[in-house]
Amino acid sequence: MPLLKEGQIVTDPWVRVEDDADISGETAVVVSLKRWLDEAETLKSRNAPVAVALSNDQSPSQLVDDLDSIDAVFLTFPAYTDGRAYSQARLLRQRYGFQGEIRATGNVLRDQYAFMQRCGFDAYDVAEGIDLAGWGRSAGAMSEVYQTATDDVQTIWAKRQGTAA
């Protein structure tokens, strides 16, 4: 599946592995939360990047103490109408200060691109042959936002106070 990062399609170094798969090599692996919790020490001592995939009912708070050792967190949209991953991303990025990649997987569409960006996602599994320019337009369609979220866009509210001051 193509990977969209910073507006470009890039090669995806990550390999998803089953809980019982051998991970002795040096590939960048994506493991389940269960495997991470069971084998955190082994995974940390590996000489390769590791990512954890959370399902929508797994709280990111379970990773709080380990976030420095994790390179990416994979979140999922089973359908784009299922918005649980937005909250997970915000918690990871904003509350727990996670610096690594937050990947959107599943039903990832351009009309939700801007929402995902505002919640802290920075990598997207997208369909083959997407219209990159169209995605760019969708991302920039709404230049003004009201509410504070996880990005560093200056909100309308902040701008108003700026002009008032």
Partner: peptide, 13 residues
């Protein structure tokens, strides 16, 4: 109204 308008987290409840 302003806060909830296109709230990025709460648009697919």
């Amino acid at each position: 109204r302003q806060w909830s308008s296109l709230h990025p987290e709460f648009t697919f409840l």
